[in-house]
Design a protein around this nucleic acid. Structure first.
Ligand SMILES: [Mn+2]
Ligand SMILES: [Mn+2]
Ligand SMILES: [Zn+2]
Ligand SMILES: [Zn+2]
Lengths: 153, 153
DNA sequence: TTAGTACTGAAAACGGTTTTCATTTGCCCG
DNA sequence: CGGGCAAATGAAAACCGTTTTCAGTACTAA
């Protein structure tokens, strides 16, 4: 995986390609110091609160696209229409247990699907290339907070 | 699971509730005879091509909402911003292998997540309530169609 | 019939994302 | 130093699936 800084001018890809532009660096900085998942808007407003000339929302989107392609960031889909992003170990990915009550999420340390790829390949002759997997429910704290009192929702 | 016909007037839920309205029946008819996943728009245009007074798109959305709640239909999210729907065995659900080339999908017969719920519960004290899981790749035909000739995409 | 409620649908609103396009940036080279 | 030029940027508009609004209609019970 070949990560280069912007204006490195390697005579390669066309526009919108895999350079770490100024904007992308700022986006990455925000993600670096967050353990939670952030939407494009989250990132954008974080930057507006701290940068003197923050990148526009469009640039944030474009940066995220590059960062995902570079394997430094993954995009996560909770099915609520708003994509979230987070840093990952380069080239890796993971899934989550998302609490429906407090919205916190546990980052799983191993992918449940990867270890099934072979059997899927064998059984269905299907070449797995990617997948979506997110698990929803209640985290330990919210279970407890729910049990004693009258169940809230 | 208590499925009743519209205007059955059980003195229960408020509006927007779990009745099988005229519109919902038509929607269900469309889904009954399709093996593929259908978007709301798909269903809507199917109905416009065959009904003399087809339900509006709004009604299609509302019907799908009810049908999902009734457990007769599941909504599936491929992460492309357009939700799809399909009939399921009442109260059940399943996942798919989606071919990125021909867009056909294999309906899996067992849920990979359900059998992991216990261990997740044990390891993370997380109460699983739901999940998203879809797998993308290449179906057998598309693999073959790809291998011999110059690889298309 | 009448009154009350659920259902319906056209149009507008919504909200996240993408596209457009004119401007700016900054490296390259003469 | 200047242009020259391609990449990067951002404001505004477009997009597009979905939801909301609200006024009209259909149905049912009394
Ligand atoms: Mn994570
Ligand atoms: Mn299916
Ligand atoms: Zn995975
Ligand atoms: Zn499942």
């Amino acid at each position: 995986m070949n990560v280069q800084s912007s204006h490195g001018h390697s005579h390669s890809k066309g526009p919108q390609s895999l350079r770490l532009t100024k904007g992308a660096k700022k986006v990455l900085e925000v993600l670096e110091r967050t353990d939670e998942l952030s939407s494009a808007q989250d990132i954008h407003s974080a930057l507006r609160n701290e940068e003197d000339s923050p990148p526009g929302l469009t640039t944030v989107y474009r940066s995220l696209e590059s960062l995902v392609q570079l394997g430094l960031v993954q995009s996560v889909d909770f099915g609520d229409g708003e994509r979230r992003y987070e840093m990952v170990k380069p080239g890796e990915h993971h899934h989550h247990l998302v609490c429906e009550k407090c919205r916190n999420s546990v980052h799983l340390d191993q992918c449940l699907v990867q270890q099934l790829e072979e059997s899927i390949q064998a059984k269905y002759k299907f070449e797995v290339r990617g997948h979506i997997l997110e698990i929803f429910g209640l985290c330990e704290q919210c279970q407890q907070a729910m049990a004693p009192a009258g169940k809230n929702q």
